[in-house]
Amino acid sequence: MTGEQIIFLITAGYTLGSGLMVVTTRNLVHAALWLVATLFGVAVTYALLNANFIAVVQIVVYIGAIAILFIFAVMLTRKDLRDNTPQMNKNWWVGALLAVLTFAGFAFLLQGWSGFSKTAAAIPSEFDAVGALGEALVSPNAYVLPFEVASVLLLAALVGAVYLAFNKK
C-alpha cells in the first residue's frame, strides 16, 4: 500500500464519518459544522487527485459560501424547530432500501473494473492544468456555450432568490 492510498483511506473514512454526523446530530448548527468537515474532506480528495483548481474552488464556494448560507438559514429558524423534530419519518425504510440498492448496483457495476489496482500516470510537471481548463472554457469548439449558459443559470438563481425573498416580505 502506497502512502497516497493510506492518505486516501483516512480521508475517505473522515469524509464518510463526518457525513454521518451531519444527519445524526440533533443540533442544527453542529450539523452545519459537520457538513463543513465533510466538504473539507471532499476538497482533500480533489487535492489528492491533483485537481488543484477544483480543490480550491470546493473550499471557496462550498465552505466559504454555501456553508455560511446554511448557518445563516439555521440561525433564522425558531427554537421549537431545533429541538423536538423527529429525525426519521415513516418512509425511512424506503430510503434505506434505495441506499442499499444503489450501493449494490455500484458494487455490481464496478466489480469487473480493472482500475482499482492501477496507479494513475503522473502528470508531467510542465502541464498547465488551469490554463488547459481556461482554454477549454473559452474556445469556440469546446465549452464556450456551457460557459455562457452558466451565467444565465446564475442569473436565474439570483432572480429566483430575489423573488422568494420578495414574496416572504
Binding site: V56, I59, V60, I63
Partner: peptide
Amino acid sequence: DLNVGVLFLIAAGAIGTLSIIMAGW
C-alpha cells in the same frame, strides 16, 4: 509552488470566516 495560489488566499479566508461564526455562535 501552487498553480492556484491566488485562489488559495480566498480559500484560507473562508476558514477564517467560519471561525468567526463559530466563535460568535
